[in-house]
Structure formats: C-alpha cells, structure tokens
C-alpha cells in the first residue's frame, strides 16, 4: 500500500492483517512527487519479487470553478489525476512486460468519456488515463499482461462527501467486488455499476452542436 498519511496506513495495515492478509507492506509518500516513483518500484520488487496485480486508485476531485481561475490549480489537478499516474505506469509497464504476466488496474472515471462544463479539468485528466491505458493494453497484450480501465460512476466515498446521494450512487463495497471480479476475468474496460456503460453511450452519442448547449 502506498499512501500519503502514515497514521492511516498504520490503521489499514493492522486491519488487513487481522482480516487475514498473509502480509502487508506500506510506503508513505505523496504520489505527486514523481521522483519517488523509481524508489517505490524498487521497494515493491524487492519486497514482493513479482507483482501480480497493481491497483492505482489515487486522485482528487477538482473544484472546477477554482481551476478556471487559477493556472497553477488547473495544472496541479492534471498532475495529480493524470501525470502522476502516467509516471507510475511507465516503470510498472516495463516490470509487467518483463514478468510476462499480471494485471494493471487503474481507476479512471466516466467523467473521462466526454468533457462537460461542470468538471472538464478532472474529466480531461481521466480522459488522458483512459487513452493511455487503451494504448498500454494493446502493447502488453502480447506479453500476457492485462490492463484494466475502471470507470466508476458516483461512488459514496470521502471524495464525494459533499454530494447529495441518490439512486445512481454505488457503495465502495459494490465497486470493490466488481474490480476483483474484473481482475480475475482479465477484463479490459469496466463500468461500475454496469448501467453507466449505457448512460455514457448516450452522452457520447449526442451531436456536438446539441451537446454544447447542454448544462451538464
């Protein structure tokens, strides 16, 4: 587990071991510090030998209005949600390619399927991930490595505390179960819950001259 907060890592570590994990190893860092990425990779390979599955799940939900007013913030959001993941995936891809097996699972978002005025900074970062992963999936296919793009809809997590929850919302437990299943079956792209595939198909099908007038 790699995370920013040592105290929370300690809590999660204990929790996992009590729940029956054979082992757990923690590394505390902010993934925006990309110069740490080679060190994380070395640690992981040294500790685990080979890596069966990697799940990249970090991100921040950008404040769109503030991003529109601040170059620094807009670029920082792109850095957190896209560039830091690209950085991490670069050595990881080579590791998995050399292993010739394993699964790279990354949380992108339905927000990356089409830019909308309400959150296109976050959306465009996730779009970058989706395209990057699509290319990576092709590249690693011949090595027997599967690359999973996870596109959750609304999930009831600390990231979305401020939102009013309705029937479109999924629980972290549902999402986790789907991710595990998708890793087992070596799926490519996963919408969670599945109905988002249809919602996003409609959103993507709307012609641009109409779409630009919508308040989404």
């Amino acid at each position: 587990m790699v995370a920013r907060n040592q105290e929370r890592l300690d809590t999660l570590f204990k929790d996992l071991v009590i729940r029956g994990a054979a082992g757990a190893h923690c590394f505390c860092t902010d993934l925006n510090q990309v110069d740490q990425h080679p060190i994380i990779m070395d640690e992981a390979v040294k500790t685990l030998g080979e890596i069966d599955i990697v799940l990249i799940a970090h991100g921040t939900l950008s404040n769109q209005a503030q991003c529109e007013q601040s170059i620094t913030l807009a670029l920082a959001e792109i850095h957190t949600n896209a560039l830091s993941v690209v950085s991490l995936l670069t050595p990881l891809a080579n590791q998995f390619e050399a292993q010739k097996k394993g699964t790279i699972a990354v949380i992108s978002s339905v927000a990356g399927d089409r830019g909308r005025q309400s959150n296109y900074v976050y959306g465009s970062a996730k779009a970058m991930l989706t395209v990057f992963l699509s290319g990576l999936r092709q590249r690693l296919n011949s090595s027997g490595v599967s690359v999973l793009t996870i596109k959750p809809g609304f999930v009831d997590t600390p990231m979305t505390i401020a939102f009013k929850k309705g029937f479109l919302w999924a629980t972290p437990e549902t999402v986790a179960t789907s991710i595990v299943r998708a890793c087992d079956t070596k799926s490519g792209v996963l919408y969670i819950p599945g109905f988002w595939y249809f919602i996003m198909a409609i959103v993507q099908a709307v012609p641009e001259f109409i779409f630009k007038k919508l308040k989404l």
Partner: peptide, 9 residues
C-alpha cells in the same frame, strides 16, 4: 461509516 477498521484480534 469510515471508522470501520479492526485494531487488534
């Protein structure tokens, strides 16, 4: 809701 960890067993 998020205070859902085991601490010792």
């Amino acid at each position: 809701s998020y205070l859902d960890h085991y601490l010792a067993f």
